[in-house]
């Protein structure tokens, strides 16, 4: 097994260059997919027999909800790699994820509330999924709070990595306990819409949007990753070369 690709992946200058070249390859497809999904979702897809055009919020709510969990998992995996193999690039990736994840968790909460209002008459509904998203937002804020609280970057990387790993273990447990809590109190549920039962012309735009947002996330991640790599890089010679390129 030839591990050189793995070690090359570890070298910051190499990753800095690759991230630069890859960004447009993620950004443009993401843009196209999102525009196509917007058109499909807002124009082509028929209104829902129950929720009418209100259901179209799913085309922004589902992707943001998906991103919030996917980004946290990505952050935890990057953190674990950083801790186990002592790879600064992995810590840089984890640091880049947090901000994006928090933004989209907030977005998914807001879109969830805006969806809940017409359906249940109140903005905040203790729906299990929304509640779990709210707790996930606190996990992000805790992660960012810990990072901000420690000056030394190397130490902040390692401490927040431990927190991210502990957090990702707890995400399913929190989700289970909130669902359990919901089942014993029969709280109203906004998100009755389970995907399989959606007809194709409703479902396709949703899948396009999910893929579009995922690619978009990686495009933004790569840009922030380059910034975090620069902040952690110490060898002057490499910096001069990277900045001149």
């Amino acid at each position: 097994m030839d591990w050189t690709w793995f070690h090359r992946l570890a070298s910051p200058p190499h990753v800095y260059r690759i991230a630069g070249t890859l960004t447009p390859w993620f950004a443009w497809p993401a843009g196209l997919l999102i525009v196509a999904a917007l058109y499909g979702g807002l124009v082509l897809a028929p209104p829902d027999y129950q929720q009418g055009d209100g259901f179209r919020i799913i085309y922004v709510h589902a992707p943001t909800a998906w991103l919030s969990v996917m980004i946290y998992t990505t952050m935890a995996v990057a953190a674990a790699i950083g801790l186990i193999w002592r790879m600064k690039v992995a810590h840089a990736a984890a640091a880049s994820c947090a901000g994006i994840g928090a933004w989209f968790t907030a977005a998914s909460l807001v879109t969830g509330m805006l969806w809940g209002k017409p359906m249940w008459g109140t903005y905040w509904v203790w729906d299990p999924r929304l509640t779990a998203q709210l707790i996930l937002l606190f996990l992000y804020l805790g992660y960012m709070g810990l990072r901000a609280g420690i000056e030394d970057t190397a130490r902040a990387d390692r401490a927040s990595a431990v927190l991210a790993i502990v957090g990702v273990v707890n995400v399913p447990i929190i989700r289970f306990s909130v669902d359990w809590w919901n089942s014993i109190h029969q709280a109203p549920s906004v998100m009755k819409m389970d995907r399989p039962s959606m007809p194709a012309d409703m479902l396709v735009p949703l899948l396009l949007m999910l893929l579009g947002f995922t690619l978009y996330f990686f495009a933004v991640l790569l840009v922030r990753l380059r910034a975090e790599i620069l902040r952690r890089e110490r060898s002057a010679s490499w910096l001069r070369e990277a900045l001149s390129a």
């Binding site: 707790i135 810990l146 420690i150 502990v166 929190i174």
Partner: peptide
């Protein structure tokens, strides 16, 4: 341990994990 204003941060980190 090594963070500024550790007390407040401790609650922010621990309470979400204490939800279950």
């Amino acid at each position: 341990l090594g963070a500024r204003r550790g007390g407040v941060l401790l609650s922010l980190l621990t309470l979400p994990l204490a939800v279950p």
